[in-house]
């Protein structure tokens, strides 16, 4: 959509900027992730730098110098809707002027994968609120803040353009990006979401394969599925309602399952493939608990320093002691 009045001018400026990027060693596929806090816990900002056909004020680039743009969206759950507050700040005088002239606007783009929700909320005000019905979003919600062209701008220029642009001017269409802030990911969950606790992210089912032995797990759905061989599952069913055996069952089924899950996400983090798990509710819960222990797999896989076994016991509230005490009580062994 974006184009300059003169194709020559546009091409020269654009190619100059691309070559500058190469010389400065920046890769267009580079990605950074920064943690920030919003109302529903934490968010992980995911920034995917890209080359625009016109200069854009973005935290990853230097198209526009000595300027910053911030957009922070926070939200809370009301009775039938989620209410979001957006706050924008920029020190770029030309962008501020465009907003005042109603040629540009602040905008929040919201997307939710699980409900196919996608919408844009916009305003000329630095602070504004908007609502999204509770029946429209669920789980991971991607939020991105922009300054956008509110109408066609025939001669866009900015006093803070990088000198590489010289005196280039650009013709912008409605909706073209002028500034982009850090993306945010917000978790939209009901307060009483039963999946908020570690134990509830596991579902224990029988493995109908007659040849199945022991146990295995599946991690490609909203919950971690623990599959037990049929004889094992029958034993589990007969024991699970007894409070005496509960801690023993956790120790023998849930702990190894959680260790395996932690190993899988550690490997994925090391290989840069954690995004594969990010839509799964179980991952959101575990990631939140790990962050409470300063383990930030997405930004810093090295922060997971302890063994998965140790961390699993911590996340489950040290079930070994409970389990051993339970066994002692059952067997009548006293000190």
């Amino acid at each position: 959509m974006a184009a300059s009045p003169s194709p020559k001018c546009y091409n020269r400026a654009y190619s100059a900027r691309l070559s500058f990027r190469k010389e400065s060693g920046l890769s267009l596929t580079w990605c950074s992730k920064i943690l920030c806090t919003v109302l529903w816990g934490y968010t992980v900002m995911q920034i995917n730098p890209r080359a625009y056909p016109h200069p854009v004020l973005a935290h990853w680039g230097d198209d526009i110098l000595d300027s910053t743009f911030q957009g922070v969206v926070s939200g809370k759950g009301a009775k039938n809707a989620y209410v979001f507050d957006a706050v924008f700040k920029t020190n770029n005088a030309d962008l501020l002027t465009l907003v005042e002239q109603k040629k540009a606007m602040y905008a929040v783009h919201v997307e939710c994968n699980s409900t196919r929700y996608r919408n844009l909320f916009k305003s000329a005000a630095e602070k504004f609120s908007f609502e999204i019905g509770a029946g429209l979003i669920d789980g991971r919600v991607e939020v991105c803040s922009f300054v956008l062209a509110a109408k066609p701008i025939d001669k866009y220029t900015n006093a803070s353009f990088h000198p590489d642009y010289g005196k280039s001017i650009f013709r912008l269409s409605r909706g073209d990006t002028l500034a982009v802030a850090h993306d945010q990911i917000i978790e939209a969950t009901k307060k009483n979401d039963p999946l908020r606790k570690i134990g509830s992210i596991f579902s224990i089912v029988p493995n109908d394969d007659e040849k199945a032995t022991g146990m295995d797990i599946e991690t490609d759905g909203p919950k971690v599925i623990v599959r037990l061989s049929k004889p094992n599952f029958e034993s589990y069913i007969s024991l699970r309602h007894s409070a005496d055996y509960r801690s023993v069952l956790i120790g023998s089924i849930v702990v190894p399952a959680l260790v395996e899950v932690l190993e899988r996400i550690r490997r994925a983090a090391d290989e840069g493939e954690l995004e594969d798990y990010s839509d799964f509710r179980w991952f959101v819960v575990i990631d939140r608990k790990l962050r409470e222990r300063n383990i930030r797999l997405q930004e810093d896989p090295e922060s997971f320093v302890d063994s998965s076994l140790k961390v699993a016991h911590e996340l489950l509230g040290q079930p070994l002691s409970l389990s051993l005490n339970g066994l002692r009580a059952m067997t009548g062994v006293d000190e």
């Binding site: 890209r50 625009y52 016109h54 783009h109 844009l120 909706g175």
Partner: peptide, 19 residues
């Protein structure tokens, strides 16, 4: 491609149709 630089959601339906 145009969605990479332009937020299509900001464009009213009649302009989208023209595009």
């Amino acid at each position: 491609q145009i969605g990479g630089a332009t937020i299509l959601d900001a464009i009213p339906p009649d302009e989208l149709r023209e595009l």
